[in-house]
């Protein structure tokens, strides 16, 4: 995560810098260094108004503000399934309505530690994902994630429903071939790396789960 340096900026400069960064890049985390109390309060307040949980750390004469975007538009901490995931916001298209979110799934488990638990968490994540609403644009499965598109997938019905609702579901063709399960794919289209690169480039936000 890059730290924005807003020291020396006069009011309302620090807030405008934070606003521009959120508008342009839609990061889920943001850190900013400020050098006065007014900027600390103002930037903290601005981030809170955008649904970030904010912590402040004193660094000599300066303050380091760290903001973490909260799930569900503010309030509670991110739901359990995502808490163990590596969720990374990449890509930043200027705000073209509507927002397009790509979820890139690299495994049939969510997080590491216990395989059985990881499998359950991934099922729970994919079922809960519909709460994201119409912003969900594409679901892309790669590596072990392609197992979730097969005939014995515990979320097959859910993924088929996403597809009916207009979400683009893609499974990596190379990966299906690697596991020799191409014939068992029951949801989504088989895809190639160029499609995946293009999708992640065009998205407003990419959530990568591994």
């Amino acid at each position: 995560m890059k730290t924005l340096d807003a020291r020396g900026l006069a009011c309302p400069g620090p807030v405008l810098l934070a606003k521009k960064t959120l508008d342009d890049q839609r990061p889920e985390r943001l850190a900013m260094l400020v050098d006065n109390d007014a900027a600390r309060e103002n930037v903290g307040r601005f981030l809170a108004s955008r649904g970030f949980a904010v912590s402040v750390e004193r660094q000599g004469d300066d303050y380091l503000l760290s903001g973490l975007l909260q799930g569900g538009g503010g309030g509670d901490v991110a739901a359990a399934p995502t808490a163990t995931a590596t969720a990374t916001a990449v890509q930043a298209q200027p705000a073209a309505a509507p927002t397009r979110v790509v979820v890139l799934i690299g495994s049939d488990q969510l997080g590491r530690g216990d395989e059985q638990l990881g499998g359950k968490l991934m099922v729970s994540y994919l079922k809960t994902l519909k709460e994201m609403g119409p912003e969900l644009w594409q679901l892309i499965f790669v590596n072990g994630g392609v197992r979730l598109t097969l005939d014995d997938s515990p979320v097959l019905a859910e993924l088929q429903e996403y597809e009916r609702d207009g979400v683009i579901v893609l499974a990596c063709g190379t990966c299906l071939a690697h596991f020799a399960v191409s014939e068992r794919q029951r949801v989504g289209q088989s895809t190639n790396m160029l499609d995946i690169v293009t999708a992640t480039q065009l998205a407003d936000k990419v959530i990568a789960l591994s």
Binding site: A10, C11, P12, D37, A38, R45, F46
Partner: peptide, 15 residues
């Protein structure tokens, strides 16, 4: 004010 557009003077006045 809710999105942090409070001039530094307001904080100084309060302090």
């Amino acid at each position: 004010a809710a999105i942090g557009l409070v001039p530094a003077g307001a904080y100084k006045n309060r302090e």
